[in-house]
């Protein structure tokens, strides 16, 4: 019997997913810890949740689980404010409740591979962390490559340093670590002898695509975790479909991780951009509204 989420008599409580803490990690990146005892208990590395900022008009936002604490009954989500919906989510404060469904998707297949290289770009470092942890616990030697545009956007570094055997930092502008793209150290590691046994890449699609291209000539098994457009996250809508090895797969029920060498990246990226124009407009409007609110607040 669970100690939380279910009362002594075994009846489920109406689970209220309350935000218990919130921290801004960089200008655009937020970390929230949400009460979700059953999800915290069940989730495994690689799985995600769908959240909504309200029940009426919110979009359903898929977010990978960055961490979970089964004792406290919380899950940690790290997200970037890339559009109107994530902006509205960022406006939620501790004590507020959100809608949360999960854990969704298949857990990462963890075993003792030998040497694992885990590449995280930007916000992708958040979902990468539990995978690094799990690989380490399974007895692997784990090298992390942490990449970001600039030092300010580099997240999860204390956490990564705590678990990884090695953490190679790169930034586009050289403000932290090497001034390079993640594929540069990745290529160097692939050329080592013996080469890595597995590579896991999570980050912007373009980064994952180039990681796949980097490892392909070396024939190193490479996994990528896809974050496509989704509605329900349970297989019902098919909005998340991608071509993998020529077959159509649903990211929500067949993924989210796939063989990066088999993913049709061009198609995946064009599908991700399906609502770009509408979203841009909504995001700008949202930005404007927030600035007005801020101004009004300052005035009063």
């Amino acid at each position: 019997m669970l100690d939380c989420g279910i009362t002594q008599t075994g009846v489920f409580m109406k689970t209220e997913h309350r935000i218990v803490s919130k921290r801004q990690l960089s200008e655009e990146v937020y970390r929230i810890e949400v009460l979700a005892p059953l999800v915290a208990r069940e989730r495994k590395a690689g799985q995600f949740v769908v959240v909504m900022y309200d029940e009426e008009y919110s979009e359903r936002i898929p977010l990978t689980i960055a961490d979970a604490d089964p004792e406290k009954g919380t899950v940690t989500l790290i997200f970037q404010t890339v559009g109107a919906s994530t902006h509205k989510l960022a406006l939620k404060e501790p004590g507020d409740s959100i809608v949360l469904l999960g854990p969704l998707g298949n857990p990462t297949h963890i075993e003792k591979f030998g040497w694992a290289v885990c590449v995280g770009g930007g916000i992708g470092l958040a979902p990468l962390h539990p995978i690094v942890k799990a690989l380490k616990e399974a007895g692997n030697r784990v090298t992390v490559i942490s990449g970001a545009r600039t030092a300010e956007l580099l997240i999860m570094q204390d956490e990564m340093n705590a678990v990884a055997d090695e953490n190679i930092v790169v930034t586009d502008d050289g403000t932290a670590g090497r001034k390079a793209l993640v594929t540069v150290p990745l290529a160097e590691l692939c050329a080592a002898s013996p080469p890595p046994d597995i590579v896991v890449a999570i980050g912007p699609p373009i980064m994952m695509k180039f990681c796949a291209e980097t490892t392909r000539p070396f024939g190193i098994k490479t996994l990528a975790s896809l974050n496509t457009i989704m509605i329900d996250g349970t297989g019902m809508c098919g909005g998340c479909r991608v071509s993998v090895g020529g077959a159509t797969k649903f990211v929500c029920v067949d993924g989210p991780e796939f063989d990066a060498h088999q993913v049709d990246w061009g198609q995946m990226m064009s599908r991700l951009g399906a609502y770009k124009d509408i979203e841009k407009e909504a995001h700008e409007k949202c930005h404007l509204e927030m600035s007005i609110k801020q101004l009004e607040k300052e005035r009063s």
Binding site: F12, K14, L38, E42, L100, L101, P103
Partner: peptide, 13 residues
């Protein structure tokens, strides 16, 4: 009748 929303049997439990 009680409702448990946002609960995916098979995954949440």
């Amino acid at each position: 009748v009680q409702f448990e929303m946002n609960f995916l049997v098979g995954r949440t439990r």
